[in-house]
């Protein structure tokens, strides 16, 4: 069981959080093609290694935030607010 750092509440057990999957996925408008829309909905990098994803401290403050986490080691690499662009080097 991981421990994740909520930017507002500090470090808490994984069971307080909900993972929302990869972050920084840009939502296309209604004029998107079927291919663009399908890519947005379903296609993901799914790397074995560092992944930028979003989590919600669902059983805490309720806030979403971004997290960079290694999907192989589960090590947390960085945390940053929802509205911010990804940190360099990720």
């Amino acid at each position: 069981m991981m421990q994740l750092p909520c930017p507002w509440c500090g470090v808490r057990d994984e069971s307080e959080f909900v993972c929302g999957g990869a972050s920084h996925i840009v939502r296309p408008g209604l004029s998107a093609s079927d291919a663009e829309w399908g890519s947005y909905l379903f296609f993901r990098d799914n790397p074995k290694g560092p992944l930028r994803e979003r989590w919600r401290h669902a059983y805490g403050c309720g806030q979403w935030f971004n997290l960079m986490r290694d999907t192989l080691t589960h090590q947390v690499l960085s945390v940053y607010p929802m509205a911010e662009p990804p940190p360099a080097g990720g």
């Binding site: 296609f43 990098d45 999907t71």
Partner: peptide, 18 residues
């Protein structure tokens, strides 16, 4: 389990999460 890793090596993405 590693389909996406191989797909990435081949230069495409899959609608898959591991």
């Amino acid at each position: 389990g590693h389909s996406s890793v191989l797909a990435a090596l081949a230069g495409f993405r899959l609608p898959v999460t591991s």
